[in-house]
Computed example of a mutant assay.
Amino acid sequence: MTSEVTIRSIQAADTYPLRHAVLWPQESIDYVKLNQDEQGHHYGAFCNGKLVSVISLFIDGNVARFRKFATRPDCQGQGIGSQLLRRVLEEAREKGAQRIWCDARAVNENFYRAFGLEPEGNRFYRGTIPYVRMAKSL
């Protein structure tokens, strides 16, 4: 990829358009807002100044969870989301987390395995979409 990727902290509200467009376009924008957003750490990956990938990190004691990880479809498969996830794993570790987890769409399980996350428990569904909880020690 030729364009420069910049990762930085953003506001929760900055994540909403991408969360909505990528994850739940058939729902209202309110569907992608989380009650905990104000307590979260939100990160964006920018390409040529445009926000193309977002992720939100929540830390509770020594356990971290990332949620609402979304990359613009035309920017997927270029390593941008991978850079963003690596940054969030580092941030979680720096903030004292010893473990991190997410509820991953089952279709993305191999992507998360590449970062050392492993499935825990059974598959479950949100609407018609299968998910699996994935976690790792930091």
Results as ranks from 00 to 15, higher is better:
G116P: 08
L23V: 08
Y43W: 14
R113L: 06
F58T: 05
I10E: 01
C47P: 02
D103N: 15
A45P: 00
I100R: 00
N35W: 12
L89C: 09
C102M: 04
Y43Q: 04
Q83G: 05
N35C: 15
E38N: 12
W101N: 01
P73K: 01
I29H: 01
D103G: 08
G40D: 05
G81R: 02
E118S: 13
Q26M: 09
V22Q: 07
V52M: 03
C102H: 00
H41Y: 13
D30F: 12
E109R: 13
A92S: 14
N62C: 10
L117C: 01
G81F: 04
A114V: 03
D30H: 14
V22E: 08
P119G: 08
K68A: 11
D60C: 12
A104L: 03
K95A: 10
V107H: 11
Q83W: 07
N108W: 09
G81P: 01
A114T: 11
F69R: 08
A92H: 08
N108K: 13
K68M: 14
D60V: 09
S56P: 00
V88F: 11
A64G: 12
P17E: 12
I29K: 12
G44T: 03
L57E: 05
E27S: 12
N108V: 10
L18E: 03
F69E: 08
I55Q: 01
K33W: 10
E38W: 07
F46N: 05
F69W: 10
K33V: 15
G77S: 03
P17R: 09
P73Q: 02
F69S: 08
G44V: 02
L18H: 04
E118H: 07
Y31W: 14
K33I: 15
V52Y: 00
D30Q: 15
A92L: 03
R8I: 08
T15S: 14
V52K: 02
V107N: 10
D37N: 09
D103K: 07
I59H: 02
G79I: 05
G79P: 09
R105A: 00
E94T: 12
R113M: 10
E120R: 11
A13N: 14
G116T: 04
D103Q: 08
V63N: 13
G79C: 07
G79L: 07
A114C: 07
H41V: 05
A12L: 11
V54A: 04
I55M: 02
Q98S: 13
G116W: 04
S82R: 14
N62P: 02
N62K: 12
R67E: 12
R72K: 15
E90P: 02
Y43F: 15
C75T: 04
S28M: 05
V107T: 09
R65N: 10
G96P: 04
C102F: 02
S53G: 05
A45H: 00
K68E: 09
S28L: 05
N110A: 15
D103W: 01
F111G: 09
E109W: 01
V52G: 00
G40N: 05
Q26G: 07
E38L: 09
Q11V: 06
V107W: 02
